[in-house]
Design a binder for these strands. Sequence first.
DNA 1: CGTATTGTTTTGCC
DNA 2: GGGCAAAACAATAC
Length: 280
Amino acid sequence: MPELPEVETVRRVLHKHLPGHQIRAVQIERPKMLRGQSKTTFIRSLINQKIVKVERRAKYLIIRLQTGSLLIHLGMSGQVFTSGGKKPAVAAGSVLPDKHTHLRMRLDKDFLLYGRDPRMFGRYQYLSPEAEKDFFFGMGPEPLGKHFTPEYLFGILKLRRSSLKALLLNQKVIAGLGNIYTDEALFQARLSPFLAGENLTRAQTLRLHTAIRTILKKAICARGTSISDYLDPRHKKGTFQQQLRVYGQEGNACPACRTLIRKTVLAQRGTHWCPRCQVS
DNA sequence: CGTATTGTTTTGCC
DNA sequence: GGGCAAAACAATAC
């Protein structure tokens, strides 16, 4: 379930290894992953291009090329694996590429890059320099960036009647939060996920702003959350699952007050909260 | 075999 | 025309 911290972890690993490499061959096994873009256009756009750097916007990986970029969204179960020199892309005991490996790229110096996605909720896409401007238009600020201020958050929540849960998941409000970090941030801020944005006080907004940034920074430090299948490009698990306080903790005691953590559906998502700590 | 899982896009209502 | 909610969509594990 890659959200901002997982995608950022993947970005950092890729950025360490990929820049300077040239793309020699591209295979795409499941054209559906291209979301309508033609396979030939995709391959023709990538081939012989040199990778300049690897960036991230929201939950999107941007592998920047000399001309345009390769955009990767990991969806729910997406993984990117690389290997270079003597290091295999294949973890000991695993079989790669397998039937879920939809993207295979050979770079120079026998460097490999695989895209794997069992549920195929993710996407691979080539973006021309012009297309990229439109693609991210209207997306909310990066929560760890300078545009995400308490004033911005207060201003945008004030206008909205939706629940905090729905608003934090809305990428036009804030970019990069998913289900796990939304629930964790609301718990840390001691705010009910049911609370409407417009009812938030300045003090509560400040708490939420701090909580979002703190949780994301901690999760990046922990290299993300590996609950079911998330792995970084070198097959390394994250460790933030050890620090989850509400997500997946239904029926367990709240770490702050020992009340049992509850779970319900809100904004069409599984939502975890402490009914005592998160009352308003 | 129905249910749960999630992020993005689409649809239709107000 | 924008906010909002719900559905659609992608596919698998259990």
